[in-house]
Simulated scan of single mutants.
Amino acid sequence: MSETILVTGGAGFIGSNFVHRWHRNHPDDHLLVLDKLTYAADPTQIADLERVELVKGDIQNRELVVHLLDRHRVRKLVHFAAESHVDNSITGPGAFIQTNMVGTFALLDAAREVWAGDKAARFLHVSTDEVYGSLGDTGKFHEAMAYAPNSPYSASKAGSDNLVRAYHHTYGLPTLTTNCSNNYGPRQHPEKLIPLAIARMAKNEPIPVYGDGQNVRDWLYVEDHCAAIETVIAKGTPGETYCIGGDSNLRNIEIIKILCAHLDKLAPSNLPHESRIAFVADRPGHDFRYSIDASKLMAELGWSPKTPLAEGLEDTVRWYVENRDWWQGIRDRGFHSERLGLATA
C-alpha cells in the first residue's frame, strides 16, 4: 500500500541519500521533501526522481507543516533538517537555536495536531552523538548516558532531542530518536572534515587539522546510516532512542593520512599530499573523542553497518576526484574550505 513520507532537509547530504534509498526500496511511495535550501542543500541531487516533490520552506512555519501533513495524509515524518556545522555554531549560534530547537518544536506541534492520537504514525528525529559530550580514552556513548553538550550546535540538538522526548511522554506522540556518529560519503558539503581535506588536496592547498589531530571520531558511511533509519522507522518502538555508529574509530590525523595516500594515487602532485598538512589553532570546546555503542540497535532491530571504513573512504575519495565540478562550484559560490583555526594560527 502506497503512502506519502515527509522528509525535512531532504536536499541535504544525509537527507538526499535517504530519499534515494527510500525511493529505491519503496517504489509505490511518494516522498515530500521540505527544505529551506540553505547553502548546504543541493536540490539537484533529488531533482530527477519520480514520485519526489520538493517544497521550499522553513520547518519553523507551523502552518505550512500542518498543511503538508494534512493535505498529503502523511503518517511518517523523517526529520533531518538542521544547522549542523559546529564551526558555524560558534560564530553564529542564533540560527542553530532557531532551526534546531524552534523548528523541531514547530514540527512536533504540527504533527500532534494533525495526527490527533494516531498511534500508527511515526515521527523520526535524526540527531547526533555530540549531545553526549566528550569521552576520555575509553568507553562508548549509549542510550542511557546523560547529555553533556559542549558546543552551541550540540546544545541545540540536545534541546531538540528533549522536546521530542517530551512530546512523546506528555502527548503520546509516536516519536523515535536516533543519535549517529560522524557521517561521510559522496556529495557531502566541503565544510566537513573529509570532503574539505580532499578538496584542498586536489587544489594543492594546505590541509588544516585542528590542534594536534589526536581527536577521535567514529566514522559511519552515509548509506549505512540511511539503512539504520529505515530500519528504525519500520521496527523501532515509539519513545525509544537508538544510537547509530560505524564502529570505525580513528584519530583525525589518521583519517587525513589515509586520504593523502588515496589522493597520491588518484590525483598525484609534485609533493606528497601529506606534506601539506597544517596544524591550526584548535576549535573552542573541541570534544576529544566520540565512539558509539550500537548494540541496542543491532540486538533489537537487526541492523549492522555494512561498509568497511577502508572501502567507504576509497569510494568517497574517488567520487570527489571524479566530480570536481560539483565541489568546485560550491567554492566558486564563496565557500573556500577554511577552518576557524586558519585565521588565528
Rank of each mutant, 00 (worst) to 15 (best):
L263D: 00
H262R: 05
L297Q: 02
E113G: 08
I258P: 05
Y132D: 08
N204S: 12
L135G: 05
L193S: 10
I229F: 12
H142W: 05
A111D: 05
E50S: 13
A281F: 06
M101D: 03
T128Y: 06
N215S: 13
A47H: 06
N252I: 15
E223M: 14
N150C: 14
D247W: 11
R283F: 09
S154L: 00
D224I: 07
A146L: 15
G211Y: 06
A41G: 07
D332A: 13
H85E: 12
K157E: 01
G12F: 00
E143I: 05
D42N: 09
P27Q: 14
E230F: 06
A11D: 03
N270G: 14
R289N: 00
N252D: 10
S151D: 06
L34T: 04
F123C: 05
D224C: 07
N88Q: 11
V222D: 02
P284M: 04
A294D: 02
D161I: 09
G245V: 07
T316V: 13
V126S: 04
K140R: 13
R283K: 13
Y153S: 04
A40L: 09
G103V: 01
P238R: 08
G57E: 05
A40Y: 09
A197E: 02
R251K: 14
R112N: 11
N215Q: 14
N252M: 15
S89L: 01
A267Q: 10
E83A: 08
V33A: 02
N162V: 09
K36F: 08
F335D: 15
V317M: 06
L309G: 01
G239C: 03
K119W: 08
P308K: 07
G15A: 07
L266C: 03
I330C: 11
I5K: 03
T104Y: 02
K265M: 11
T104A: 08
T237C: 11
F288A: 14
S295E: 12
S156H: 00
R112Y: 07
W22G: 03
P208I: 01
D48E: 10
E113Q: 12
A120F: 09
E205R: 08
D58R: 11
N150H: 13
W319M: 11
D28E: 13
F279C: 07
P206C: 06
L32K: 04
G12E: 00
E274C: 07
G341V: 14
F18E: 10
F105C: 11
K56Q: 15
G12W: 00
I244K: 01
F18A: 10
A234T: 14
R251D: 03
S134M: 07
L259N: 02
E50L: 07
F335E: 13
R24Y: 05
N25Q: 11
N100H: 07
V216W: 01
T170R: 10
S269T: 14
I229P: 02
A278E: 08
L68R: 10
K192G: 03
E113F: 10
F18C: 03
D87F: 02
T178D: 03
L297F: 03
E223P: 04
H169A: 13
L6A: 05
H142R: 09
R333A: 12
M201D: 01
F18Q: 06
N162W: 11
L266Q: 06
L309Q: 02
R71I: 00
S269F: 05
H23S: 09
L266A: 08
D129L: 08
T237I: 12
